[in-house]
Design a binder for these strands. Structure first.
Ligand SMILES: [Zn+2]
Ligand SMILES: [Zn+2]
Ligand SMILES: [Zn+2]
Ligand SMILES: [Zn+2]
Lengths: 166, 166
DNA sequence: TAGCAGGCGTTATATTGTAACAGATGACCT
DNA sequence: AGGTCATCTGTTACAATATAACGCCTGCTA
């Protein structure tokens, strides 16, 4: 398990984010073609907004983007695009923030752990294997059927820590 | 790690919940005396409401209790009581639900994992040790300072599963 | 051409949570 | 006793997040 972008960069440190953006965007387009999903203008606009940085954005921040692009005016426009992106594994909802990030792992839906900086709201994502399994095993031994696991570590990223401590 | 009440009962199955309630309530009272905390009528009312079952209750459901008890009329009354209970480790917020449960482990603040039934909203809590540590270790190797870890497994409890599947 | 499903526009409303200020209470000191 | 301070509470007003419901349009297909 590592907290990194699709290319092994630490999303909390400066990096060539254009590569993140373009790689994920291309992977999503390919996946949609393959699976017969429609990446409509509104959905693409929301995805692009999420891909501008590793910051989590709220539905209303995304709605602003839709408005500016002339692709939607009301909350349901944003929530519908998000529903599509989350359902298909292209974005994740950060429960702790009530906000959304693009998935850097592309493709099928999966279980992830997040580091969430409470100062800058940037998010790092790690694919999750064993924590989920240990939990699910314990749970199912009690008859509980696990459908989804949320793992979010809230704290302070290195950049914000430096800024605060001088 | 086990998902159980303070007495080893599975909170998703029928059990003598009066023992849960009374034991936790007594533990909280003792802890408040020890630490010089004030379990005021409004705070006790909210705690008692949470202790009526293992279901997560929203702030507004708790506000109803305060209203019926004549201990508060407006949202801040509920949120203030919850802030006290959560800050002192007597209750937990379930991020996935925007709702609150009483802590069955009593005492000092700690990190927990939850099983959350999306049908009945009952919640089981397990004290968390190694998952938190693996995550925190990885995170801190990247310079990320973890302050709090949220682990919530959403799914269907045995009782609700039986009800659905016949 | 008729029907159907998916996507979207729009209105209205529900749900969850806070900011800000003022009044009350009780502990503690002089 | 009177002053002072911190904490707790009451109240108004509002912010932020999310959904229900209805109807239109478009593209596909039977
Ligand atoms: Zn990047
Ligand atoms: Zn940061
Ligand atoms: Zn119980
Ligand atoms: Zn259940």
């Amino acid at each position: 398990m590592t907290f990194a972008t699709a290319f092994g960069r630490d999303p909390f440190r400066p990096h060539d984010h254009r590569r993140c953006r373009e790689a994920v965007r291309a992977a999503v387009e390919a996946d949609c073609r393959e699976r017969g999903l429609r990446l409509t203008p509104a959905r693409a606009c929301v995805l692009d907004a999420l891909l501008e940085s590793h910051r989590a954005l709220t539905a209303y921040e995304l709605l602003d983007r839709l408005r500016k692009a002339g692709l939607g005016q009301q909350p349901p426009a944003a929530y519908r695009a998000l529903e599509f992106l989350v359902a298909n594994g292209f974005a994740h909802r950060i429960e702790r923030l009530g906000a959304y990030v693009a998935c850097v792992h592309g493709g099928a839906s999966h279980c992830a752990a997040f580091l969430v900086c409470r100062a800058c709201r940037r998010v790092a994502e790690a694919a999750l294997d064993e924590p989920e399994q240990a939990l699910a095993a314990k749970a199912e031994s009690v008859g509980f059927q696990v459908e989804r696991v949320v793992v979010e570590a809230e704290g302070i990223c290195e950049t914000c820590g430096r800024a605060a401590n001088g």
